[in-house]
């Protein structure tokens, strides 16, 4: 039995990597991948805690499945936005898309 701390530590590392990707990367695709990493860290947390608190039930796993589903939809939408951005600007650099202000 792997102790809970290991799962939480792995989840924390994955989440931090995701945050770094979102903040540091300029390419929209890579930013998206960072978001995916953060989502997966969260899913892992759910599953780990659920199994730790009540091993007989699968509540956390169900949540993880939901998160995966929503993430798939989110990526579908986000990739569509990125494609539109690329068509308009001929770039996928998020710094170039700076019109979202007053």
């Amino acid at each position: 039995m792997v102790p809970l701390e290991n799962y939480v530590a792995l989840s924390g590392i994955l989440f931090a990597l995701g945050v770094y990707a979102v903040l540091a990367r300029r390419n929209a695709i890579l930013v998206l991948m960072g978001i995916e990493l953060m989502l997966n860290a969260v899913s892992l947390n759910f599953a780990a805690f659920a199994s730790y608190l009540d091993p007989d039930r699968v509540t956390g796993a169900v949540f993880a499945v939901f998160v995966i589903t929503v993430a798939a939809a989110e990526v579908g939408l986000a990739l569509a936005i990125v494609i539109r951005l690329f068509r308009l600007r001929a770039t996928s650099n998020v710094d170039e898309a700076a019109e979202l202000k007053w």
């Binding site: 979102v22 998020v94 710094d95 898309a97 700076a98 019109e99 202000k101 007053w102």
Partner: peptide, 17 residues
């Protein structure tokens, strides 16, 4: 205060974090 809005996505993400 509107000048706080840069429109750059990483800035918003950074503030969020």
């Amino acid at each position: 205060l509107k000048h706080l809005q840069s429109g750059r996505l990483p800035h918003y993400a950074m503030s969020l974090a």
